[in-house]
Design a protein around this nucleic acid. Structure first.
Length: 288
DNA sequence: TCCCAGGCGGTAG
DNA sequence: CTACCGCATGGG
């Protein structure tokens, strides 16, 4: 059993991190505890007073570095907050509300597949589908007497036919998952090369080549896996909150996406992705 | 029964 | 280039 403890960690609230819409494989155990699967490890995170206690099974790598990387612990979120708080009262308010948010650095492959599944779908069902995929094609990991399953590798998931995927409840997304998996498997699309690009727009352009990846999904991948903080995923909630606060269009659905993109770019000082998370969590928790 | 869910791909204009 | 529509599935 591996263990790692943080004391007096700034910006770290379990609910804020795991329920701000960035991840699908974490489940609440009780008010102070969440359990999730990261790569080949099951991880339990427990808050006790001023301590965050991570325990877990970590087979093939250093537990501490896995935790520090995944939870983005070498980034000081106070700096983000300071910059964004200066913008206006709305940012100040939303940051106060979601003060413990951190952007996770999730596995690129898993994030691509997860957000293709997210298209025209809801969070509980996305989670169920990902769980089914993992149970069927991933590897079993035992932790504290229970069975968990790693997210399948490219090779593992490539064993699924379109029909297999349909049977797991993927609906019309079956072909998209299949095609994207094949493209990555046969190196038509190179994940490692993508990671090495130094420009968010170039990365996005590449991601859009994958079947099932459009602008919104690409931005989610950029932000939630590659931590490109200038990526700004626009979904119904973000469109709503941005319209309410800054645009005041009668019909929020008619808000022009490009206009919104540019507004975010100008306003949020290259941190539009971070701002987006605070706004999203704020709006969705209050109204959703 | 109808509507919606963190959109995308395809087609028409 | 923008505008719209169909899409599988499940829950409210």
């Amino acid at each position: 059993m591996e263990k790692y403890i943080l004391e007096n960690q700034e910006s770290f609230n379990l609910k804020h991190i795991f329920e701000c819409g960035q991840c699908f494989r974490w489940n609440k155990e009780d008010e102070e505890t969440y359990i999730g699967v990261v790569k080949n490890a099951v991880i339990k995170v427990k808050k006790e007073n001023n301590k965050i206690i991570f325990t877990g099974s970590s087979k093939d790598e250093n537990f501490e570095s896995l935790i520090r990387y995944y939870f983005d612990l070498d980034t000081n979120y106070s700096e983000y907050k300071e910059k964004l708080s200066k913008i206006d009262e709305f940012m100040k308010e939303s940051i106060k509300f979601g003060e413990g948010i951190r952007i996770l650095r999730q596995d690129l492959w898993e994030t691509i597949i997860s957000f293709i599944i997210s298209a025209n779908n809801n969070i509980p069902r996305i989670k169920k589908i990902i769980e089914r995929l993992s149970t069927k094609y991933g590897n079993k990991i035992e932790f504290e007497g229970k069975d968990y399953y790693s997210f399948p590798t490219v090779k593992e998931l490539s064993k699924a036919t379109v029909e297999d995927l349909r049977a797991l409840g993927l609906g019309f997304r079956d072909k998209r998952i299949f095609n994207t998996t094949q493209m990555i498997l046969n190196k038509e699309f190179d994940l490692e090369k993508l990671k090495k690009l130094d420009n968010t727009n170039l990365m996005k352009e590449e991601l859009l080549k994958l079947d099932g990846v459009g602008p919104k999904v690409a931005d989610c991948i950029l932000l939630f896996s590659l931590k490109r903080v200038d990526a700004f995923p626009i979904d119904v909630w973000v469109r709503r909150v941005m319209n309410d606060l800054y645009i005041h269009n009668e019909d929020e659905n008619k808000v022009n996406k490009k206009e919104l993109q540019k507004l975010a770019e100008d306003k949020f000082l290259g941190l539009s992705g971070i701002a987006q998370q605070y706004l999203f969590y704020w709006k969705r928790e209050l109204e959703g």
